[in-house]
Design a protein around this nucleic acid. Sequence first.
DNA 1: ACGGTGCCCTGGCCGC
DNA 2: TGCGGCCAGGGCACCG
Length: 275
Amino acid sequence: MPELPEVETVRRSLAAHVVGQQIVAVDVRRSDVVAAPEHGEMFPMALMERTIEGLERRGKYLLMALSDNLWLVVHLRMTGRWVLTAPETPEPAHTHVILRLSGGQELRYTDPRRFGRLRLVSADGLALCPGLSTLGPEPLDPAYRPEHLAEALARRTTRIKALLLDQHVIAGLGNIYADEALAMAAIHPDRPASSLTTDEVACLYQSIQRVLQAGIDAKGTSFRDYVDGEGQKGAFQEQLWVYGREGEPCRRCGGTILRAKRGGRSAHFCPYCQV
DNA sequence: ACGGTGCCCTGGCCGC
DNA sequence: TGCGGCCAGGGCACCG
């Protein structure tokens, strides 16, 4: 499930190979993964012969800068993958889009659950892109400070974990890194957001940055499906404190990690040292 | 504006 | 071995 560190790892692993290459063929197998342009033939036509000028990331969005001021905006959601492979490599199941590059390799988009979406927009249209235009601050941006997090949590009655998952509040956290950041900060996920003290917000701010950076350093968490642009798994699952560790001892206090349903998804935490 | 719920979608897993 | 049911969860529509 790609969150900020996974998308950043995909970005880095692909950028080294694809930037500067031209798209010489486009094959769309399932047009329902293409959210824009809506007309089926426009997407491949517009991509043809464009040069990939850069790869960027914003929150969990992967942004491919193309020649002629075009952007390919990608959200991988749960099971989306971009993998660069030789054309003779057998095609994996659920391959929905293939971009043949001038270097001879294929950039393949696969997504078993088809939650992910590709959106081709002009540079002007980028600001109007659903999701992207209302995205909250980038947590690893040096301009992002603890005061910004404090302001976003003030007067909010909802659970702190629900706010961390809200992409308008802060961009890039998903279920894994939200649980991990709260565990590192020793804050209970059910705490009302506005109940956090200034010190707790500062600690949470630092925990968010540390857990995201550690995730990037480990090239992401490969809990189920995630691989990077070269098909490689990440290693952060080996360092997890709470996510997927129900019934196991807390790495800080030895207490038993709990898993509880919150708003349709599971929260993992140590009920003894997360208060 | 805010908080909460349900939906999409399929592979994998569990129990019978 | 087969099959039904459930679970994983990001983003958004929708409701009160």
